[in-house]
Nucleic acid binder design. Structure first.
Length: 553
RNA sequence: UGAGCUAUGGUGUAAUGGUAGCACUACUGAUUUUGGUUCAGUCAGUUAAGGUUCGAAUCCUUAUAGCUCAACCA
């Protein structure tokens, strides 16, 4: 075992805290806002938070940061829970920032009592104006020096619904000249007469992120509160509030968000792809959402392995998608059932095969000794892949050509004797002879062939549809290109093969099962489009040395 | 142009003052009844310039580059 594996910087912090006796175990949380679907970026955060608490003996809460009623919905809560579970993690408590609204309100009162917060009647434009800029200090609001009593009165009236949206806010009283703009009297509470997905119409004032997040961490006794780099400037405020409120000191630690090449990850952009119909929904198999990739056939094991391998850092990264593809291939190679499917059929007649059908056996998975076998019918008329035959092959072409020999996987060696073409010279059928003594596993023919082809017997073949997905974008980093990211959408990200021919064993395909279509790639049944017919999504191709060889020319 | 964060092969990540290592990708070759898998190997890196030190990817200084901050979003 590789217990030698070095620690990342967060693990170092945790181990130091544990060693110093600061804590005996740790508490982390995964805090999504229920206003969208989870994506790969969230998956890495989930693996981090749950992975850490598991490693150091503690637990992780699932906490919804639901402090903005206008964007949040129960639909998102449900999909988020489903995704976290699917990734293989169990949260200790399912919590909501909205559970703490009363407590948070008390905290706000406490700040007012300590003369550390005040009600501001300015408009949002006025506040923005006085806030200054990154290079210019701000100026005090004219309402900054109201008395505690007035502030208390006003804030209670805000809660009571006496004012309209935007009329007043509660602000922390810190320092309008602070170099960190977040410390220039940040807004703590705003008025929103909106229906909340959990508290209904009970509240018309809602805490801002900074007033809610750290305090929620603290209420839950979260020891290590992990978030992404853009929250670094918030840490000062996070600590300030905890200190002034004199509550449990949760510690915020920031790490870099992990982007993946050839896709986009921001909620805004993903939403655009959905709304403008560039994809068919949040769970479109081309989307980097967890629901999309699940539908495409990615596995939780592959995600977790990916997160492990990617590691953790404090600089912005763009991870090569081929690492994710490696992880899913590695897992699927171990678990996928092998099946033969011909996408673009070319008829082969075995001229010396006369009986009806011979039943052969094929192993379900050569990587798994415990896997079984399935029966495969062989007969006089077969389909092979049209691209597996060439009239005038280049050198290093190991497949079928006039006079050439190949093995049919699990079956016999055949020789191509005759090529039948139509009047346009298009190949219609191949007439071949087979060598009965060359049967797979019992080969006494002494013939050596370079190539092995997949095939299906015609009379027993079943049909299916396959959907071949490719990367959604043509460039590595669509967000970083000139112009609109949507200009770089790959027009060929989805290729449909309406009718493909499969061996009969695939008739019993199951939703949870993963398949490797020999020489084609890994496939799984689509979860949505299933009425009356078999529809398979391609998760990822196999590595293809021949395709590479051809590309070089 | 103020403040903060970051900088190691194409990509991601180690080395915690003492041999720059691992993985992915790419490329060779071997094995193979999947041009898959497996195995062996190759290419390739400390942003720059100074300084401290017997010794610097690591500490210091300066520069450069990238990211973040001017939402009543999170």
């Amino acid at each position: 075992m590789s217990e030698e594996k070095s620690l990342n910087f967060i693990e170092e912090i945790i181990e130091d805290d544990l060693k110093d006796g600061k804590y005996n175990s740790i508490v982390t949380r995964f805090p999504p806002e229920p206003n969208g679907y989870l994506h790969i970026g969230h998956a890495t955060s989930i693996c981090l938070n749950f992975g850490l608490s598991k490693k150091y003996g503690g637990y992780t809460n699932l906490r919804f940061d639901d402090t903005n009623p206008v964007t949040e919905e129960t639909e998102y809560v449900d999909s988020i829970k489903e995704d976290v579970k699917w990734l293989g993690f169990d949260w200790k408590n399912e919590l909501y920032a909205s559970d703490y609204f009363e407590q948070l309100y008390e905290y706000a009162l406490k700040l007012i009592e300590k003369d550390l917060a005040y009600v501001d009647d300015s408009t949002s434009e006025e506040i923005a104006l006085l806030k200054g800029t990154p290079t210019e200090i701000g100026k005090d609001s004219p309402y900054r020096n109201r008395s505690k009593e007035v502030n208390l009165q006003l804030f209670k009236e805000m809660r009571a619904g006496k004012y309209k949206d935007g009329e007043r806010v509660l602000r922390a009283k810190i320092d309008m000249a602070h170099p960190n703009m977040l410390m220039r009297d940040p807004i703590l509470y705003r008025i929103k007469h909106a229906h909340h997905h959990r508290t209904g119409d009970k509240w018309c004032i809602y805490p801002m992120y900074d007033m809610a997040h750290g305090q929620s961490d603290s209420i839950e006794k979260v020891t290590h509160s992990l978030c992404t780099l853009e929250f670094v400037p918030h840490r000062e405020l996070y600590d300030w509030l905890i200190e002034k409120l004199e509550i449990f000191p949760s510690k915020q630690i920031e790490f870099a968000r992990r982007n993946v090449s050839y896709t986009v990850m921001s909620k805004r952009k993903l939403l655009q792809l959905v709304q403008e119909n560039h994809v068919q929904g949040w769970d479109d198999p081309r989307m980097p959402t967890i629901s999309g990739m699940r539908r495409r056939g990615y596995t939780p094991e592959a995600f977790r392995e990916f997160c492990d391998r990617v590691g953790i850092a404090k600089r912005d990264v763009l991870i090569d998608i081929s690492l994710l593809e490696f992880c899913v291939r590695e897992h699927l190679n171990r678990v996928a059932l092998r099946r033969m499917v011909v996408f673009d059929p070319l008829k082969v007649v075995i001229t010396n095969f006369t009986e009806g059908v011979e039943i052969l056996e094929g192993e379900d998975n050569p990587e798994d000794e415990k896997s079984g076998n399935r029966e495969i019918p062989f007969g006089r008329e077969l389909y092979i892949e049209r691209e597996d035959f060439m009239d005038n092959p280049p050198k290093k072409f190991f497949r079928l050509f006039p006079g050439g020999m190949v093995r049919l996987k699990y079956a016999y060696i055949i020789r191509c004797d005759e090529v039948v073409k139509d009047e346009n010279g298009v190949v219609q059928e191949l007439r071949c002879t087979y060598f009965p003594e060359s049967r797979s596993g019992h080969d006494k023919s002494g013939i050596n062939v370079k190539g092995t082809l997949h095939w299906v017997e015609q009379t027993n073949a079943i049909t299916a549809e396959v959907r071949l997905y490719d990367r959604l974008f043509e460039v590595e980093d669509p967000s970083n290109e000139e112009g609109d990211f949507k200009d770089y959408i790959n027009p060929d990200s989805l290729k449909l093969e309406k009718t493909v021919y499969a061996e009969p064993a695939l008739k019993n395909a199951r939703l949870e099962e993963r398949y490797q279509f020999l020489r084609k790639g890994y496939f799984t049944l689509d979860t949505k489009d299933t009425n009356q017919r078999l529809v398979f999504n391609r998760t990822v191709t196999l590595k293809d040395a021949w395709a590479k060889e051809q590309k070089k020319r």
